[in-house]
Design a protein around this nucleic acid. Structure first.
Length: 468
RNA sequence: CGGGACGUGGCGCAGCUUGGUAGCGCACCCGCUUUGGGAGCGGGGGGUCGCAGGUUCAAAUCCUGUCGUCCCGACCA
């Protein structure tokens, strides 16, 4: 078999770029840091959107749309927020050929505009909670960019909510963290995640508490797959989001924000991909089954049509390929690069025996199955391989997670995956030292693995790793 | 922002040292033969060499300026 991609073991970043190019997922745009997402890549993102959106709605948040441009003055109202974002803002100063009275910032995130409007819409405790979400693109002028993982412009969903009490805000942030994000990542993306709390240093600009979901990529580096923040009353005070309580007194609301982005596409690629290309988890895959006519003749295309129909009827997302003028090898390699979970090959040779060949992307296995049993075999394979991908990602993570008792030990082990180190043995000074060596504290968890309410709880465990 | 490199058909590159008006691989188009792991042969289309200026009879090649991109570092939900 001809070598299509740079092997992961030879040069992982190169492999990553190769897959994205060869599978035609995306390429860089004309302006620095911008990216063009091609149909194959966008289809994967659309599936992510569909699944995450379902869960967001189950959490009772409603979708809406806020403007791309934000008055510059809004950003300045929350001190830490401006400080955090100022260096990466793009600002519009001219409109219609005239200098604008007030420059408009292209949104890097929308806490500020949404806060402004929440203030208008909330009068009473009866208006709370207010649960909003928007699917949007945002812009951050990043110094160094990589397709999907860190692009200047990227697509995401950003949820913004306001609550009457701190407890309610906290509960909601946790609900999003677990019921929306963790559930999606584990059950659809098939990526195990460490769910925890960010240290003060890694906290979102303007938040009081930041939570994260960290995945481990196949090169031993961690990737933040999503975050959820408690903003306390910081934004409520800056934007005057107030309400009259049942006690007849005026209060500031407690707000939250949370998001996942196109970065997850990069995470899916790096958590599951192998030297033959993508391995897209079946439940996520825009194309789950790829029906391929190997060669014409002897009723082959009729059989292909009927299998295509049967699979569709069984609820499988299926693509039919009858391009017999394109060589077999090219089509097989393309299907593997794109990570279609199951390929059904039909040719006169198999059909003579009443069979088709079923090829599974996860383990590369090939099996002859009778035409009648094909649909069932495909749905069974999809289910089994969803689990198989999760199991292998979990096994990889377990094999690349170690325990350390001292910082020095941890820094050594962090060269190849996660290290668990008692937070007491690390601390903020240790975190600074780790950062200097390219290692960061990804998050803090309790000894039982649950998410801490505060960074000051005794007995916390820090997860350290190199990261994207 | 500090250090390094590079801009030549769609992509990847050679040519530049020793100026003479552009070449290779892939991709693309046509034809025939092929098709169970990126097919073979033959034919063909497409670039004025990032941009501007200069030297020269003559510039992709030399000089100056300029713009852009990439890599390393710093920076970074």
């Amino acid at each position: 078999m001809a070598r299509v991609l740079t092997p992961q073991s030879e040069d992982f970043p190169r492999w990553y770029q190769d897959v994205i190019a060869k599978a035609e997922l995306a390429e860089t745009g004309p302006v620095r840091g911008s990216q063009v997402i091609r149909p194959t890549g966008w289809a994967i993102w659309e599936r992510m959107v569909a699944e995450v959106d379902l869960r967001i709605k189950d959490a009772d948040a409603e979708n809406c749309s806020f403007p791309l441009l934000i008055p510059e003055s809004y950003l300045k109202r929350e001190a830490e927020h401006v400080e955090g974002f100022a260096p990466e803002l793009a600002v519009v100063t001219i409109g219609g050929g005239k200098e604008l009275e007030e420059p408009a910032v292209i949104r890097p995130t929308s806490e500020t505009v949404i806060g402004e409007f929440m203030a208008k819409w909330i009068q009473s405790y009866r208006d709370l909670p207010l649960l909003l979400n928007q699917w949007a693109n945002v812009l951050r002028w990043e110094m160094r960019t990589r397709l999907f993982l860190r692009s200047a412009e990227f697509h995401w969903q950003e949820g913004h909510t306001a609550h009457a009490t701190r407890e309610d805000a906290r509960d909601y942030v946790r609900r999003i963290l677990h019921d929306v994000y963790e559930d999606f990542m584990v059950n659809i993306l098939a990526i195990p995640v460490v769910v925890g709390r960010k240290t003060v240093r890694e906290r979102f600009a303007g938040a009081t508490d930041t939570y994260t979901l960290e995945g481990l990529m196949r090169d031993g580096k961690a990737l933040q797959m999503g975050t959820s923040h408690e903003l306390g009353q910081n934004f409520a005070k800056a934007f005057d989001i107030g309400f009259l309580g049942s006690d007849g007194k005026q209060h500031h609301a407690w707000t939250t924000s949370w998001g996942v982005s196109t970065r997850m596409v990069g995470g899916m690629i790096m958590a599951h991909g192998d030297d033959n290309g993508l391995r897209v988890p079946p439940r996520l895959a825009p194309v789950q089954a790829y029906v391929m006519v190997v060669k014409d003749g002897e009723g082959v295309s009729e059989a292909a049509q009927s299998i295509h129909k049967a699979l569709k009827a069984a609820g499988v997302r299926v693509k039919l390929d009858t391009r017999t003028d394109v060589p077999f090898g090219r089509r097989a390699v393309d299907a593997e690069l794109r990570g279609y979970p199951v390929r059904i090959e039909l040719g006169p040779r198999d059909l003579k025996e009443g069979n088709v060949t079923i090829v599974r992307r996860v383990d590369g296995s090939k099996a002859a199955v009778s035409v009648d049993a094909a649909a069932k075999a495909v749905t069974d394979a999809l289910e089994a391989d969803q689990q198989a991908l999760y199991d292998s990602a979990l096994a990889y993570r377990e094999a690349h997670t170690s325990d350390a008792t001292t910082l020095a030990e941890a820094l050594e082990a962090a060269q190849d995956g996660f290290v668990r180190l008692p937070w007491d043995a690390c601390g903020e000074d240790g975190e600074t030292q780790a950062n200097q060596q390219g290692v960061s504290v990804r998050c803090l968890v309790r000894a039982d693995g649950s998410v801490p309410d505060s960074g000051d709880e005794p007995g916390l465990i820090a997860y350290l790793a190199r990261s994207y």
